[in-house]
Design a protein around this nucleic acid. Structure first.
Lengths: 138, 138
DNA sequence: CCGGGTTTGACAATGGTTCTCAACATCGCT
DNA sequence: AGCGATGTTGAGAACCATTGTCAAACCCGG
């Protein structure tokens, strides 16, 4: 926050291709649903790599900031992650097994924008997640 | 979870009107936006009452379960609470000052139900919160 | 006023997440 | 290839919201 930021402002900050970051990326590629940082950390270990938990957190956060992964919170407030397509979308998540369906809702986007505008709110962000029990888990 | 549950099942369990519960209710009546449990706890102290933090949590949780308060999570995953009307609704929350607008979106309800049904998900719940900057804070 | 189930509070314990900081890896340059 | 500057990492401590523990205090019906 107090950096001098020589020239390019909020631009692609340097991201060195380290072994650890590659490991996290590889782990992310290995599943489709949302996983907690700790689960991802375990996955990496199981894949033979060794990456510190703190590093997993750091990497996930910066990936999320870069828009390369989705981060949302489960009903307990824990952060869960997964790599994502680049369009804005929401999720239908199975409460039991974590199976995820990616959903798009242009209608919802429009609705939230309208509501916010109506009340003069700017600089919006919103969360919309649906939790339920998938057909398999019932 | 392993309780025997003698007779009435998910019914109105006894809720004794203790000094502490009254204090929490009073505190809740004193603000319109969402506050964390700790802030509410502070508020109570400032009002002269003394209630243990654990009790505040317990009371808020049970009130939430009874549908008398809304609990949602801010962007940091912390639980925030406020008393609410009894209909299902969502919120437009100012990121800076916490000012809250209660919004209803029958369209959204219908949409989530449709989506979930389409994928065979049952036992639904969903979260939809909009964060932004209110007119005053800009 | 009594007895029994509820509720409380102080404090410990959890558990996810972030911070600290010395050791280390990369990059750009020569 | 060698070097210095700077970004990264890891182990563990630190944080901090939230929940568990359990004896003491409380409320209620009789």
């Amino acid at each position: 926050m107090t950096s001098t930021d020589p020239q390019g402002s909020t631009q692609t900050q340097q991201r060195r291709p380290t072994r650890q970051r590659r490991a996290v990326a590889a782990a992310l590629a290995g599943f489709d649903d949302f996983r907690s940082a700790q689960e991802i950390h375990d996955l990496i270990s199981r894949q033979g790599d060794s990456v510190g938990l703190a590093t997993v957190y750091r990497t996930l956060s910066s990936l999320a900031e870069a828009g390369e992964v989705d981060m949302l919170r489960n009903e307990d407030g824990e952060a869960i992650w997964r790599s994502c397509s680049d369009t804005h979308h929401h999720h239908l998540v199975c409460r039991t097994c974590g199976a995820t369906v990616e959903v798009e809702g242009p209608a919802v986007e429009r609705w939230t924008n309208a509501i916010a505008a109506e009340h003069g709110y700017a600089d919006l962000s919103h969360t919309l997640e649906i939790f339920g029990t998938c057909p398999t888990c019932r």
